[in-house]
Amino acid sequence: MILGSKLEKFQERFPERLFDVGIAEQHATTMSAGLATQGMKPFLVIYSTFLQRAYDQLVHDVCRQNLNVAFGIDRAGLVGADGGETHQGVFDIAFLRHLPNMVIMMPKDENECQHMVYTATNYDSGPIAVRFPRGNGLGVPMDASLSTIPIGKWEVLKKGADAVILTFGTTIEMALAASENLQKQGIHVEVINARFIKPLDETILHERMQKNIPILTLEEAVLKGGFGSAVLEFAEENNYHPYIKRMGIPDRYIEQGEVDQLLEEINLTKDQIITEINQLLLSSNDKQKRA
């Protein structure tokens, strides 16, 4: 959608490089795959909720043939009142993450987003997605020159040795706020920008899990099959047993409402993060006492 995804300026500047296929997500996805077979680098810009309609094309045409299609997944996360229940963009992580060859990123702000788009442009090892929320940027300064982000490399936003929050995109802000609050109680919680949902930053995970630091994962996406599940899988595959708590969207459809109201309703809030971290530390300390 040219207007919905704000592509008017691109269209103005490169009219011959923009193709509006109409309401045809399946065709758009496989056509992008066709372009990629000929050495082109298509960007498929599509709302998270509508990408659902092209699942077989993702599986069978793009990921199986490991083609260089870049996805701009718009409206990722809760979409607010004007879309509502049918338009929540909360399933894409779960239905993309299990597809071989897929890389999934989400930026913390518009500046990181431009570097991710640049990263996707320069990536030629298969499909890669940048998911971003509905709404405006945060107003951060934009770097003048673009750089690629190493695939699978996370970023430590705030240091702390007592517990770690792994999160990305829209939920980073509440994680940082929770960490600030906890610091006043003498609890030092690390906050990590897990900007690659796939692949995970295994170096960071090995380090934290080897030290048995309690982990909280936080995502504005469905819990089942989501980012937190990926962290649990990593622990299982590597035989680590840290305390892990996942926060995210529960196993039900989320109705319409302003995003803040919805987050409150499903307990995806700063206060709940503080509660969960305290609980994690309590369990972890109990275990150490018993041992």
């Binding site: 399946q26 065709h27 496989t30 056509m31 066709g34 372009l35 990629a36 077979t37």
Partner: peptide, 11 residues
């Protein structure tokens, strides 16, 4: 047909 369209555009 979708794949062909992608290839034709690339061409």
């Amino acid at each position: 047909l979708s794949a062909a369209m992608g290839m034709a555009i690339a061409r």
